[in-house]
């Protein structure tokens, strides 16, 4: 990203920082690489193309199959409607359906659960912002086990 009018170096740097703040505020997740230049006014932000593992949630994530009842959570939990294998993306290597920070609509596909060789689309049952992905890609999931945590405040 480049831009900013020709001004003094300090003003240019301030403008760059302001632009960086705006970009980071709306970014789905933190970038893996940031470059800020003043001479020639430049910001470079890099997000890895590979699916980064979601950040570990604060609460201990449930074990794949032997899950106890989930820890109490303020957010809304999207739960598994069937037993099977949990996938975050439509195919290996593809970007995930959703990641932490994403806004999802009710009915939007957020994952796949494979059961009996059938790929079952999993949809968010409410609108909200994804605050945690509770399972790893490819993990086994039991019925009713939490998959995602959503912050639904102001999202209905």
């Amino acid at each position: 990203m480049t831009g900013a009018d020709h001004q003094g170096p300090a003003a240019t740097l301030a403008a760059l920082h302001a632009a960086l703040d705006r970009v980071l505020r709306d970014a789905p997740r933190p970038p893996t690489h940031v470059v800020v230049r003043s001479g020639g006014e430049s910001i470079e932000l890099t997000w890895s193309a590979a699916v980064a593992p979601p950040p570990a949630p604060e609460a201990a994530p449930p074990a794949p199959v032997e899950a106890e009842q989930p820890a109490a959570s303020d957010g809304h939990l999207v739960r598994a409607p069937l037993v099977g294998t949990f996938y975050v993306a439509p195919e290996p290597g593809a970007p995930p359906f959703v990641a932490v920070g994403d806004l999802v609509e009710a009915g939007q596909q957020v994952a796949i659960i494979e059961a009996m060789k059938l790929m079952n689309p999993i949809e968010a049952d409410r609108a909200g912002r994804v605050t945690a992905v509770l399972l790893k890609n490819g993990e086994g999931v039991g019925y009713d086990e939490p998959l995602f945590e959503l912050d639904c405040d102001g999202q209905g």
Binding site: V65, E66, M116, G142
Partner: peptide, 28 residues
Amino acid sequence: DRRINIGPADPRRSYLYAPAVIEAARLT
């Protein structure tokens, strides 16, 4: 030793639901 939830209380959707039982066996 291990446990897995395969469905809701209605036995037709859990204990009688073959796909869930098979999938549970595969996963474990």
